[in-house]
Simulated scan of single mutants.
Amino acid sequence: MSAITVSVPTEELAGDVSALLDPELGIEVVRWDGQEPAPRDRFDIVVPPYMRQGRMLARLHEIDCGLVQGQAIGYEGVEERLPAGSTYANASSVHETATAELTIGLLLVAQRELDRIVRNQDRGVWDNGGMPAGLADRRIVMLGYGGVAKAIARRLEAFEVDLAPVASRARDEDGLHVHALSELDELLPGAEILINVLPGGAETHHLIDDAVLSQLPDGALVVNVGRGPTVDTDALVEHVRRGRIRVASDVFDPEPLPEGHPLWSLDGVFITPHVGGRSAAMRPRIARLIAEQAERLARGEEHVNVVIRT
């Protein structure tokens, strides 16, 4: 059996993956981040850098490559860059928990007015007035019901919310009724919170537009942990400017959000800079996934998480 070779973008990840591998399988892990020419003519598995995989994908035509193992869940725009005959797997199982954690954080910040409280702390102001909306008994419509959305739904159970997931087709799953996207117009007028967990791409581009936002009640909260372009930013800004809609978002269009953009300064907006998957849990989880893929290949088994075959 010939040795399996895997490239990863950092020495730290190389060490993490190597420590997990069965030494009897003869798997070699090499550092390559795509900044320089490939150190080998062939890699069985190539792992591009996290969130910066474009240069690596452009170099793949220079080598013979088996599987490309991404470090993110999303993969829009990847297929056009892959050489013919390539296989691409995403990082399902790595980021769902961390993104769900952040989503709960965004909800709590907005619904318990924690951003206002933190700003008061900076000024040394004690103000416990008002009655924040909170999460209990709130009606939440969630767009998407994939891995991240399911992780969010499990955590929301503890907050005693009224959750209505929405996906491409209606079904009953995990003890919830998942509504079809065609029902969205009926659901939005009663939605106090709209969570977007949809992937990017042509089918979801500007799905949350002025027409969708206009159906939400005054004071509704929009939380986006999916992809920035799923929301029409100009329409969102206009609704926030009018005081109709509040926003707590981790993703934007454009991204990074430019200096001076209205969302930085408008009331009712809380911004995190696309950090949904960034927690200490990522490093061991991505290492486990890469090691699993390498060992599967060495044993003649199918890869997991394959989303593109060119």
Rank of each mutant, 00 (worst) to 15 (best):
G130N: 11
M131Q: 13
M131Y: 14
P132S: 04
P132E: 10
A133P: 00
A133K: 10
G134W: 07
G134A: 13
G134D: 14
G134N: 13
L135N: 12
L135M: 09
L135A: 12
L135K: 12
A136S: 10
A136I: 15
A136P: 02
A136R: 15
D137K: 15
R138C: 11
R138S: 15
R139N: 11
R139D: 00
R139P: 00
I140K: 02
I140Y: 00
V141D: 11
V141E: 14
V141K: 00
V141P: 13
M142D: 07
M142P: 08
L143D: 14
L143N: 09
L143Y: 13
L143S: 08
L143I: 09
G144F: 04
G144R: 02
G144L: 00
G144W: 01
Y145P: 03
Y145T: 05
Y145K: 02
Y145N: 06
G146V: 04
G146T: 11
G146N: 09
G146F: 06
G146A: 11
G146Y: 03
G146S: 14
G147W: 02
G147V: 01
V148P: 06
V148I: 15
V148H: 01
A149N: 07
A149G: 12
A149Y: 01
A149M: 00
A149R: 00
K150Y: 00
K150M: 05
K150W: 02
A151L: 10
A151F: 06
A151N: 03
A151I: 09
A151V: 12
I152M: 00
I152R: 08
A153I: 02
A153E: 03
A153W: 02
A153M: 02
R154Y: 01
R154S: 10
R155N: 08
R155F: 03
L156R: 05
L156K: 05
L156W: 04
L156Q: 06
A158K: 06
A158M: 07
A158G: 14
A158P: 04
F159Y: 12
F159W: 08
F159D: 05
E160P: 03
E160D: 09
E160W: 05
E160T: 15
V161R: 05
V161Y: 03
D162H: 14
D162T: 13
D162N: 11
L163D: 11
L163C: 13
L163A: 10
L163W: 09
L163H: 09
A164H: 09
A164C: 08
A164Q: 13
A164P: 00
P165M: 08
P165A: 10
P165F: 03
P165V: 01
P165H: 07
P165K: 02
A167I: 01
S168T: 11
S168Q: 14
R169T: 15
R169I: 10
R169W: 04
A170P: 11
R171T: 14
R171K: 15
R171S: 09
D172M: 04
D172I: 03
D172N: 13
D172K: 13
E173L: 13
E173F: 12
E173Q: 12
